[in-house]
Computed example of a mutant assay.
Amino acid sequence: MTTSAGRVPGADGRPAGVPAGLADRYTTAWELVPDGRARNDDGALVLPVRTRAGEPAVLRLSPPRPGAEHEHLALRVWAGRGAVRLLRAEPADRALLLERTADRDLHDVPVLEACRVLGELTRVLARPPRPPFPRLSEIARRWQSELAGAVGLDARFPRRFRLQAVKNLERLRRDELDAALVHQDLHYGAVRASARAAWLAVGADAVVGTPEFGLVPALWHRADEAGHGGALAAALADRMEALALAAGADEERLRAWVLVRCTVAARDEVARPTGAPHREVSRLVQLCKAVQRGA
């Protein structure tokens, strides 16, 4: 599931927001040789290249988005441990030269095994908190205030879940939220196989937060594989257990964050100028139902 607006590619297949000619500029400036076809990877332009020394790499050019300005900093902090190595960066253009991985990602792995990998990577990527990354304590405070007043959401999304999300945030904020630098969008497509390590995160959407917050995408992605109703609830319970064990996380806090992040995603979908597709909001409702105790 994606919670950001769809990005419409340009006439040449280039992702919207990536200026024409930018890839040519950086292949020239950084003395890179194209080594395959460019592709759209979640709204970013990714071009396989070889460096002047012949090293396989990828040139990644991202459109403007919240958090993109910090991606190179997180990759420097991680320094190749659990994530791809950063070879070069130009933050002003959101241009990154990254270690190349294989094309195989965690969609090719049974979901519970994939959850174990995501949990282990979440633990490995956790680092001591540091600026300038966004802080979960501030995000949670803002979300609690916004959701408390989002009565307009109730026409499209169950009021009980909105109010429960507010209560969850009130409870979660009593604990330390700015515990570590964590990846907040680590999902099955964002982890690739590598010759250097079995699996590596290929992006870096980092926040100073908690592992439970970072594990949520593993539950809302691939949810369609689990069916509906009781089958979905049972499948998500198994995933939460696998994720929490591998990450050293608290399962109940994870359950609370799932409902919060799904509610925020629903709020954002409903607020789109064109209106959110009914099916996407319905998916979020089903996820909220499935993570209820006794569902």
Rank of each mutant, 00 (worst) to 15 (best):
E31K: 14
E31H: 15
L32H: 01
L32S: 01
V33G: 05
P34A: 12
P34H: 05
D35S: 13
D35F: 07
D35I: 12
A38I: 11
A38N: 11
A38S: 15
R39A: 08
R39K: 15
R39F: 05
R39T: 11
N40A: 14
D41N: 12
D41H: 12
D41F: 13
D41I: 14
D42Q: 12
D42T: 14
D42P: 01
G43K: 11
A44V: 08
A44L: 13
A44K: 08
A44W: 03
L45Q: 01
L45P: 01
L47G: 02
L47M: 10
P48F: 10
P48C: 11
P48T: 11
V49T: 01
V49Y: 04
R50A: 03
R50F: 03
R50K: 14
R50P: 02
T51H: 09
R52A: 14
A53N: 14
G54H: 13
E55M: 14
E55W: 10
P56L: 10
P56G: 05
A57P: 03
A57F: 05
A57K: 06
V58F: 02
L59K: 01
R60P: 05
L61T: 03
P63G: 04
P64Q: 14
R65D: 07
P66H: 13
G67N: 06
H70S: 05
H70G: 03
H70Q: 13
E71I: 05
L73A: 08
L73D: 04
L73M: 13
A74G: 07
A74E: 06
L75N: 00
L75R: 01
R76Q: 15
R76Y: 03
V77Q: 06
W78F: 01
A79Q: 11
G80P: 07
G80D: 05
R81H: 13
G82C: 04
A83Y: 02
R85A: 09
R85T: 05
R85D: 09
L86S: 00
L86V: 07
L86E: 01
L86T: 00
L87N: 00
L87Y: 04
A89N: 07
A89D: 12
E90M: 07
E90A: 08
E90G: 00
E90F: 07
P91A: 09
P91Y: 11
P91W: 12
P91I: 13
A92K: 15
A95G: 04
A95S: 05
L96K: 03
L97G: 00
L98K: 04
E99L: 12
E99N: 05
E99D: 09
E99V: 04
R100P: 02
T101K: 04
D103S: 11
D103T: 13
R104M: 13
L106G: 00
L106P: 04
H107I: 06
D108L: 15
V109M: 11
P110D: 12
P110S: 08
V111H: 01
V111K: 02
V111Q: 07
L112P: 01
L112I: 14
E113F: 08
A114N: 04
A114S: 08
A114G: 08
A114W: 02
C115H: 03
C115N: 07
R116H: 09
R116M: 10
R116T: 13
V117N: 00
L118M: 10
L118F: 03
G119Y: 03
E120T: 12
E120K: 09
E120P: 02
E120F: 04
L121V: 02
L121I: 04
L121H: 02
L121K: 00
